[in-house]
Design a protein around this nucleic acid. Structure first.
Lengths: 220, 220
DNA sequence: ACAAAAGTGTTGCATATACACCCATGG
DNA sequence: CCATGGGTGTATATGCAACACTTTTGT
């Protein structure tokens, strides 16, 4: 392995996350705006370099903490993006993740050394993104839709206790289609994804809703 | 992105494949023996650098061609390995694939500039490998077992036409457990993985066996 | 009383599993 | 005629999808 062989010198490892939330029934993704070239003033997904003293999962946890202030977030690797020319500066491979959090728990930094804006965008109102991030975002959405019933990826979207209608509405927003409420409840309970806590939440003008929590153990 | 920042300079992208075969009912993996330090004379999985003018899939196809002389092989990415110290020479990330071929179609090079031996090893007789390849091989086997019924990954293990007992025995060898022959046939036909060609193969001392072929279209 | 939201069970269909006997051939 | 190996169907269980009415509460 010759570090100076032009065939494979100056390669870089990047990690990035399509970080989603659901707010008021709207499915949204966190984007940041680049301050400098290349893609100056373009919106992109959050991410950064993988440092030499950490593996890619650790790098993503660090980036997540730096970008959102949150620790121990559930997120999942979904694909490697490696087109040779995906970055105009140098050969850069992207290890891409999907995560879902409660945007109200987060204070996103509007300005950093590299960005001059940050915001949650409704999925159907995302502008053209820098780099190959438009493609990455599309694949991230597809991945999330596939995994939503077989993982705890939504665990950080809700507080410890939540009602069934809340989680139901999140699924509908993300999948962008109707789901049968009875089958939905049956499936999440049968698969042990959520647990009936026995508690009730009284709400004005409505029948009280049961409170559930996510199961602790990991799925597939 | 500063190429000289010591936090993330001198990173390298490697691709490697756990290349499997089944020969005489034995599940085997292709290993090569390193000629030089580090891990001199240790056996490792086949792989190499991803060049700057190709994406990781192209790099793997090129490596596969160089290592086995075969083109257009079905193989599947399964995991990124990125522990900081997995290579003692430099920071090296491994994009890992699984592939399955017919070892009799291949003339593996016994000696190259970097290797002084190459051979197919029965899975239960694999020696301790260099780098983190023992761990990668274990995960590759698990991945293959999971994917074997939902992909065409075995397509290159057989000639164009094959009999049901042949493919059945390969599945049994790889999964290392008994499978019901009737359900096996039903499943592969129902899922459209294999197609009955209507041809028959006469064999000595046995009832003639039907000839099947893999379906062309891609699965999941 | 009624509107709005939350609660809940049953049936049919499809998929997966378990299981055993007959047929062709060569020695 | 028997040993070997290849062929095949049925019955049960499980998982998934379709489907509507009742309860609570505030106005």
């Amino acid at each position: 392995m010759d570090k100076n062989n032009p065939l494979y010198k100056n390669q870089g490892i990047h990690v990035l996350t399509a970080l989603f939330t659901v707010e008021n029934g709207k499915f949204k993704v966190l984007l940041i705006k680049r301050k400098n070239q290349p893609y100056k003033n373009k919106w992109i997904l959050v991410g950064g370099a993988c440092y030499n003293n950490e593996d890619v999962d650790q790098a993503m946890q660090r980036e997540m903490l730096e970008k959102t202030g949150l620790k121990n977030i559930n997120y999942e690797f979904f694909k490697v993006f490696s087109k040779p020319d995906r970055s105009p500066i140098m050969r850069m491979i992207a290890i891409a993740y999907v995560g879902v959090i409660d945007c109200n728990k987060v204070k996103v930094l509007k300005e950093t050394t590299k960005t001059n804006d940050a915001d949650w965008f409704q999925i159907d109102r995302v502008p053209e993104l820098g780099y190959d991030h438009t493609e990455i975002l599309e694949e991230a959405i597809e991945y999330l839709k596939k995994r939503i019933f077989n993982s705890h990826i939504l665990k950080n979207l809700f507080p410890k206790y939540f009602t069934l209608p809340e989680v139901y509405n999140a699924y509908v927003s993300i999948l962008d289609k109707k789901i049968d409420r009875r089958n939905f409840r049956k499936k999440l309970l049968a698969d042990g994804i959520i647990i009936d806590t026995g508690k009730l939440l009284s709400q004005n003008g409505k029948k009280s809703a049961k409170l559930y929590s996510f199961a602790d153990d990991k799925l597939i």
